[in-house]
């Protein structure tokens, strides 16, 4: 146990200030301290991606980041990308194309995919498979996840075109 420190992070647009041991892992800060339970724990060794969140614009596995490293950052979790009345196109697409089964990987998958589509708005199947390789799903075999991401990309691109 070590001395508690003062930290400030912004999660889904909301500023949070608290005292914590520096060794606290970001996933625990989110899940235990802030009760943001969308991100999950599947391994705690940065292999499965269930804990994926966006930190300062980058996809990050929050199980292997200390809260001390996250001090001052802006974080987006699955809870921050859509609302029940206005789902993110990825949330819609995963529902529509059966991109999930047990749902345990889903928050990590969707938040990672949302980043991927920012990086590559019109990804090929290969780019999706490569870009999502840090997120493991034990249920779906990925085929419908790929389909969901493709559908969301198409939807987002046509919405963008319409707006332009």
């Amino acid at each position: 146990m070590s001395k508690k420190q003062h930290y400030k992070i912004t999660v889904n647009g909301k500023e949070e200030e608290f005292l914590a041991e520096p060794r606290e892992l970001l996933i625990h800060t989110l899940r235990e301290r802030l009760k943001i339970t969308g991100p999950h724990i599947g391994c705690e060794t940065s292999h499965c991606g269930a804990c994926t969140v966006t930190v300062n614009g980058k996809s990050v596995k929050s199980c292997t980041v200390f809260v001390a490293q996250a001090d001052g950052t802006e974080i987006t979790t699955i809870e921050g990308i859509g609302s029940p009345d206005a789902l993110h196109p990825l949330q819609e697409a995963f529902k529509e194309h059966h991109g999930l089964q047990c749902g345990f990987c889903t928050p990590g998958m969707i938040i990672r995919a949302s980043k991927l589509l920012e990086e590559i708005p019109n990804p090929s199947e290969e780019e999706i498979r490569f870009g999502m390789a840090g997120n493991i799903c034990r249920c779906t075999g990925y085929q419908n996840i790929v389909k969901s991401i493709q559908a969301a990309a198409a939807e987002m691109n046509s919405a963008k075109e319409a707006a332009e």
Binding site: R31, E32, K35, I36, T37, G38, P39, H40, I41, T77, I78, E79, G82, P84, L87, Q91, F94, K95, E96, H98, L100, G103, F104, T106, P107, I110
Partner: peptide, 21 residues
């Protein structure tokens, strides 16, 4: 039929045992 479970899972509102406080 589309799955009725998916609304909560896609929004991070599943209720797994470790979510219980």
């Amino acid at each position: 039929r589309k799955r009725v479970e998916d609304a909560r899972f896609t929004q991070g509102k599943g209720n797994y045992v470790d979510d219980l406080k």
